[in-house]
Structure formats: C-alpha cells, structure tokens
Nucleic acid binder design. Structure first.
Lengths: 140, 140
DNA sequence: TAATTTTACTTCTAAAACAAAAGTAATAAT
DNA sequence: ATTATTACTTTTGTTTTAGAAGTAAAATTA
C-alpha cells in the first residue's frame, strides 16, 4: 500500500500522493471543517466510502501528512490531525479555492465565494495567518 | 464523458476536474516542457497510456482549459495550448513544486530544485512573470 | 450489569477506470 | 508509389472504486 513515484519530477511526485478525488478532501475537512474523526470524514457532503476513507487515512499517516492520536479519556475515538507536512498543503488548497472561484464561479457555494473574496484581498497574509492557526491546533 | 460535480465546494469541484494522476501532468508539460502535441505528451517520462491521454485531452478541451488547434501549413499535427483558464492553474502547480521540494526534497530532480529555489525568492513575482510568458504563447 | 449504540474500521461484490498492446485512417515525407 | 508519422481508437486483462454489509472493541443507556 505504499506510494510509488513515477519520476523525480516534483509535480508528478505530488500527484502520486495527492492525485485522486478524495485525499485533499480529507485535508480540507481537517483544515476548514474542524473535522478529526473517521465519523466526521464519513459524514462530509461528498459521501466518501468507508473503505476508501480508511485507505486514504492510512496512506496519509504513513506519509507523515496526518498524525493519528487519541484523547486521554477515550480509548475508542481516533483523532486525526495535520502534521507540519500536512499544514504545508494549505497553499495548494487555497489556490484550488481561488481557481474554482474564478473559473467555476457560478456553481460554487456562496459561503465559499465569500472566503475566496477574503483570500483575494491578501493571499500571502491569509496563508500566513491561517498557518499560524493550524499550527496552534496541531498535536505536536 | 462530462465532468460531474459532487458538491458545490470549490475544492471538491477543482478535484472533480483535476483530481487524478495525469491531468495536471499534461498541464505541466505545456507550461514547463514546451510540449503541445499528442506525441509530445506521449513521450513524457511518466509514460501515459495513449487511451488515457486522449481521454484527458478531450476532457480538458471540453472544459475550456486547453485549446485544440492546428498550424496553417500542417493538416495532421494537432496543437494543444492553454486557455486563460488553463494558465490560471499555474499557482496550483507552483505550490505543488514547492510542497514537494520542502517535503519530498531528497528524491526530487536537481534541476527542479533549482527552480523551486528561484520561486521561493519571490513567489508572487514568479507567478506574475511566468503568467505573462504563458499568455504570450497563448493561441488567443 | 446487561443490553444497546457508537466508533473505526474490514470484507465483499459489482461497476468503473486504468494499463498495455495492437490496430487504423489520414497525412506527410521519401 | 511506398513508407513513416501522427493522432488517435479498440481490445483485453488488471486494478481501483462504490456501495452495502459485517465486525470487534469501547462507551453509553436501561
């Protein structure tokens, strides 16, 4: 189940990890949806199948993009959180938000278009500030 | 063969279009590899199968991300070029280069690490300048 | 404390997508 | 006129995905 790299191209290699319809949605849910458990991810609007979700979570943990942890008083619930490597995916996701806002605009959710508007005021500042926020929520 | 959107989330919608291992590699080849023909894309290092290539090119043209054209004196060769919508994918690709450089660094091609280094000096400037370059090569 | 529910998965099967190889039609070069 | 090239299409076998159902451990409820 490990990731194979097709070449030494950084774009190709990023796609070897991120290039599917679900991986970045899990990252999105943690980054912007305050989600952290298997159940949380399962209940997202796009209806990911549980088998695929389990597969992607395992991959992301193996790759060091997610950290798998527990809360001290609960032995059942598994908490997934972003590592630094995961937090650094923020710019990619932000650029996807902007690209969709510019190019698929009429079909995008209004709440998200507001966010896009805000990001456009100062993208670099948004990424810096939001990165600080994500680090403050990080497990370690 | 048309693209269906799973939700009105801009990230999900971007992934409905870009979320696979090949689509952005074609964009990369046009943006950074001076490639423009079916044969050019076929000969890339990652060895895309011809059926998948044909499928992706058709999709990207339907979506208005690529333009399908010909040269005046050649009836055989098909020239694919980026539209404005396609050029606007540059930030996403640049961020993938940077993420891979930072997080998969040791396995990334040295030439590309040089590019990453250059981009890091001033990302916004690089994107602006390179966008101008891409627009100058654009078909219309 | 016993029964029920919840959580985080795993398993199964059918459908869809993909990979590799081979084939084709039109055009271009020799 | 023959051969090669380009841009695909087709075919077949394999892998991945989607959807439904099942399971084990832990937590909650009666």
């Amino acid at each position: 189940m490990d990731t194979k790299f097709r070449s030494s191209c950084p774009i190709s290699s990023a796609l070897d990890i991120l290039g599917d319809k679900w991986t970045l949605l899990i990252i999105r849910d943690i980054m912007f949806g305050k989600k952290s458990t298997f159940k949380d991810f399962s209940s997202s609007g796009e209806k990911i199948a549980s088998g695929i979700l389990a597969n992607r979570l395992a991959k992301l943990e193996t790759l060091g993009i997610l950290h798998k942890g527990k809360l001290p008083d609960n032995k059942k619930t598994v908490i997934y959180s972003l590592t630094q490597k995961g937090i650094e995916l923020l710019p990619i996701i932000v650029d996807m938000i902007l690209w969709s806002d510019n190019n698929l605009g009429d079909h995008v959710d209004e709440k998200m278009r507001e966010l896009a508007k805000k990001i456009k005021l100062d993208k670099e500042a948004f990424i810096n500030n939001y990165t600080v926020h994500l680090r403050s929520v990080m497990a370690w």
